[in-house]
């Protein structure tokens, strides 16, 4: 599944890191979230969907 993040909206709330730490990370000096894997396997779909749903600014989008 393909992940895109609208970095212009990211405010580093961190909900995606809690939901899917395999895919998202925020380092100490990061201004926006880091996508560790923008094409993760299907086994992570539930976690990534949760991350997208939880994102308070709806910056995470999922493709096929």
């Amino acid at each position: 599944m393909k992940i895109t993040v609208d970095f212009d909206h990211c405010e580093v709330h961190g909900d995606c890191v809690v939901a899917a730490p395999e895919v998202f990370d925020i380092g100490d000096d990061d201004d926006v979230v880091q996508v560790l894997d923008d094409n993760p396997g299907e086994e992570l779909r539930t976690k990534v969907e949760t991350a997208a749903k939880m994102c308070p600014v709806a910056a995470i989008k999922l493709g096929a």
């Binding site: 909206h9 405010e11 580093v12 709330h13 961190g14 890191v17 809690v18 990370d25 925020i26 380092g27 100490d28 000096d29 990061d30 201004d31």
Partner: peptide, 17 residues
């Protein structure tokens, strides 16, 4: 205005920090 403030503040409150 919100984003400018929140980005600074959020960095002190990330899961890692």
């Amino acid at each position: 205005r919100h984003r400018a403030q929140r980005q600074v503040m959020s960095k002190g409150f990330t899961p890692k920090v």
